[in-house]
Amino acid sequence: MQRRHFLILGSLLGASPYIEAKAQSAFSKKFENVKSTIAAVQEHMFPQGSKIPSAREMNTIRFLFETVEHKSYDKDIRAFVLEGAQELIDREKGKFNTMTAAEKEKALRGFEETNYGRNWLSRIMTLTMEGLFSAPVYGSNQKEAGWKALSAYGGEPKPTVRYVAL
Protein backbone atom coordinates (compact mmCIF):
# COMPACT_ATOMS: atom_id res chain seq x y z
CA MET A 1 0.00 0.00 0.00
CA GLN A 2 1.20 3.52 -0.72
CA ARG A 3 2.37 5.04 2.55
CA ARG A 4 0.31 8.20 2.11
CA HIS A 5 -2.83 6.13 1.71
CA PHE A 6 -1.87 4.12 4.72
CA LEU A 7 -1.42 7.24 6.80
CA ILE A 8 -4.73 8.83 5.87
CA LEU A 9 -6.81 5.67 5.76
CA GLY A 10 -10.03 6.27 7.68
CA SER A 11 -9.53 10.00 7.98
CA LEU A 12 -12.60 12.18 8.26
CA LEU A 13 -10.82 14.43 5.83
CA GLY A 14 -10.70 11.41 3.57
CA ALA A 15 -9.02 12.19 0.29
CA SER A 16 -9.33 15.94 0.69
CA PRO A 17 -6.21 17.76 -0.40
CA TYR A 18 -3.86 17.50 2.49
CA ILE A 19 -2.30 20.48 4.09
CA GLU A 20 0.60 21.53 2.00
CA ALA A 21 3.70 22.19 3.96
CA LYS A 22 6.11 22.98 1.21
CA ALA A 23 7.70 26.15 2.49
CA GLN A 24 9.04 25.97 5.99
CA SER A 25 7.50 29.28 6.94
CA ALA A 26 4.12 27.97 5.81
CA PHE A 27 4.62 25.00 8.07
CA SER A 28 5.46 27.21 11.05
CA LYS A 29 2.29 29.18 10.55
CA LYS A 30 0.13 26.10 10.27
CA PHE A 31 1.83 24.54 13.23
CA GLU A 32 0.85 27.49 15.41
CA ASN A 33 -2.82 26.58 14.83
CA VAL A 34 -2.42 23.07 16.18
CA LYS A 35 0.51 23.49 18.55
CA SER A 36 -1.51 23.71 21.76
CA THR A 37 -3.50 20.59 20.82
CA ILE A 38 -0.40 18.54 20.07
CA ALA A 39 1.17 19.78 23.30
CA ALA A 40 -1.99 18.82 25.20
CA VAL A 41 -1.83 15.32 23.74
CA GLN A 42 1.84 14.99 24.67
CA GLU A 43 1.08 16.18 28.19
CA HIS A 44 -1.71 13.65 28.49
CA MET A 45 0.59 10.87 27.36
CA PHE A 46 3.48 12.05 29.56
CA PRO A 47 1.84 13.75 32.54
CA GLN A 48 3.43 15.29 35.59
CA GLY A 49 3.73 12.96 38.56
CA SER A 50 4.84 9.99 36.44
CA LYS A 51 8.06 8.04 36.97
CA ILE A 52 9.39 9.57 33.78
CA PRO A 53 9.73 13.29 33.12
CA SER A 54 6.66 15.08 31.86
CA ALA A 55 6.22 16.44 28.38
CA ARG A 56 5.54 19.91 29.71
CA GLU A 57 8.66 20.04 31.90
CA MET A 58 10.84 18.81 29.05
CA ASN A 59 9.22 21.06 26.47
CA THR A 60 8.74 18.17 24.08
CA ILE A 61 6.54 20.27 21.83
CA ARG A 62 9.61 22.27 20.88
CA PHE A 63 11.53 19.11 20.00
CA LEU A 64 8.59 17.91 17.94
CA PHE A 65 8.35 21.19 16.07
CA GLU A 66 12.08 21.44 15.35
CA THR A 67 12.25 17.84 14.19
CA VAL A 68 9.23 17.86 11.95
CA GLU A 69 9.89 21.30 10.54
CA HIS A 70 13.37 20.45 9.30
CA LYS A 71 13.71 19.80 5.59
CA SER A 72 15.34 16.43 6.21
CA TYR A 73 12.11 15.14 7.79
CA ASP A 74 9.72 13.05 5.75
CA LYS A 75 7.34 15.49 4.07
CA ASP A 76 4.34 13.14 4.17
CA ILE A 77 4.70 12.66 7.91
CA ARG A 78 5.19 16.40 8.38
CA ALA A 79 1.82 17.00 6.77
CA PHE A 80 0.26 14.11 8.65
CA VAL A 81 1.28 15.53 12.03
CA LEU A 82 -0.62 18.73 11.24
CA GLU A 83 -3.61 17.00 9.70
CA GLY A 84 -4.06 14.58 12.55
CA ALA A 85 -4.08 17.37 15.08
CA GLN A 86 -6.67 19.25 13.03
CA GLU A 87 -8.76 16.11 12.84
CA LEU A 88 -8.68 15.74 16.61
CA ILE A 89 -9.66 19.40 17.02
CA ASP A 90 -12.57 18.90 14.63
CA ARG A 91 -13.69 15.62 16.19
CA GLU A 92 -13.86 17.28 19.57
CA LYS A 93 -15.43 20.48 18.21
CA GLY A 94 -12.52 22.63 19.27
CA LYS A 95 -12.83 21.68 22.95
CA PHE A 96 -10.01 19.19 23.39
CA ASN A 97 -7.57 21.60 25.01
CA THR A 98 -9.99 22.66 27.72
CA MET A 99 -11.20 19.18 28.64
CA THR A 100 -10.51 17.50 31.98
CA ALA A 101 -7.99 14.67 32.06
CA ALA A 102 -10.82 12.10 32.10
CA GLU A 103 -12.49 13.71 29.12
CA LYS A 104 -9.20 13.84 27.24
CA GLU A 105 -8.65 10.17 27.96
CA LYS A 106 -12.07 9.36 26.53
CA ALA A 107 -11.49 11.55 23.49
CA LEU A 108 -8.08 10.06 22.73
CA ARG A 109 -9.26 6.49 23.26
CA GLY A 110 -12.07 7.22 20.85
CA PHE A 111 -9.63 8.64 18.34
CA GLU A 112 -7.45 5.56 18.85
CA GLU A 113 -10.37 3.38 17.73
CA THR A 114 -9.95 4.76 14.21
CA ASN A 115 -7.07 3.56 12.11
CA TYR A 116 -6.18 7.12 11.30
CA GLY A 117 -6.24 8.29 14.89
CA ARG A 118 -4.20 5.34 16.00
CA ASN A 119 -1.51 6.09 13.45
CA TRP A 120 -1.42 9.71 14.44
CA LEU A 121 -1.26 9.03 18.18
CA SER A 122 1.46 6.51 17.58
CA ARG A 123 3.44 9.12 15.65
CA ILE A 124 3.03 11.69 18.43
CA MET A 125 4.13 9.05 20.96
CA THR A 126 7.24 8.32 18.88
CA LEU A 127 8.11 11.98 18.42
CA THR A 128 7.69 12.61 22.13
CA MET A 129 9.81 9.64 23.18
CA GLU A 130 12.47 10.68 20.69
CA GLY A 131 12.63 13.99 22.50
CA LEU A 132 12.64 12.58 26.02
CA PHE A 133 15.22 9.89 25.40
CA SER A 134 17.53 11.28 22.74
CA ALA A 135 20.80 13.03 23.57
CA PRO A 136 20.43 16.24 25.61
CA VAL A 137 21.71 18.26 22.65
CA TYR A 138 18.25 17.87 21.11
CA GLY A 139 16.73 19.84 23.96
CA SER A 140 14.05 17.61 25.50
CA ASN A 141 16.15 15.31 27.65
CA GLN A 142 17.19 18.17 29.85
CA LYS A 143 20.02 17.36 32.23
CA GLU A 144 19.58 13.75 31.10
CA ALA A 145 16.35 13.55 33.10
CA GLY A 146 14.85 11.03 30.65
CA TRP A 147 17.87 8.78 30.87
CA LYS A 148 18.10 9.10 34.66
CA ALA A 149 14.50 7.95 35.03
CA LEU A 150 15.34 4.76 33.15
CA SER A 151 18.89 4.37 34.50
CA ALA A 152 19.94 4.06 30.88
CA TYR A 153 22.54 6.45 29.60
CA GLY A 154 23.53 7.02 26.01
CA GLY A 155 27.05 5.94 25.20
CA GLU A 156 30.17 8.04 24.88
CA PRO A 157 30.95 10.20 23.07
CA LYS A 158 27.64 11.98 23.21
CA PRO A 159 26.76 14.14 20.25
CA THR A 160 27.65 17.79 20.60
CA VAL A 161 25.73 18.85 17.51
CA ARG A 162 22.35 17.76 16.18
CA TYR A 163 22.30 15.45 13.19
CA VAL A 164 20.95 18.18 10.99
CA ALA A 165 24.30 19.91 11.37
CA LEU A 166 26.41 16.86 10.52
Binding site: H44, M45, M129, S134, W147, A152
Partner: peptide
Protein backbone atom coordinates in the same frame (compact mmCIF):
# COMPACT_ATOMS: atom_id res chain seq x y z
CA UNK B 1 17.13 3.78 24.53
CA UNK B 2 14.42 5.25 22.33
CA UNK B 3 13.72 2.03 20.51
CA UNK B 4 13.63 0.01 23.73
CA UNK B 5 11.29 2.52 25.31
CA UNK B 6 9.03 2.62 22.28
CA UNK B 7 8.70 -1.14 21.94
CA UNK B 8 5.75 -3.25 23.11
CA UNK B 9 3.76 -0.51 24.82
CA UNK B 10 0.40 -2.00 24.10
CA UNK B 11 -2.03 -3.69 26.41
CA UNK B 12 -5.22 -5.34 25.23
CA UNK B 13 -4.74 -3.77 21.83
CA UNK B 14 -4.50 -0.25 23.20
CA UNK B 15 -1.51 2.06 23.49
CA UNK B 16 -0.16 2.56 26.98
CA UNK B 17 0.33 6.15 28.10
CA UNK B 18 0.13 8.26 31.23
CA UNK B 19 1.55 7.20 34.58
CA UNK B 20 1.11 3.53 33.63
CA UNK B 21 3.65 4.06 30.85
Amino acid sequence: IISRARKNNEENGKMVWGTVL
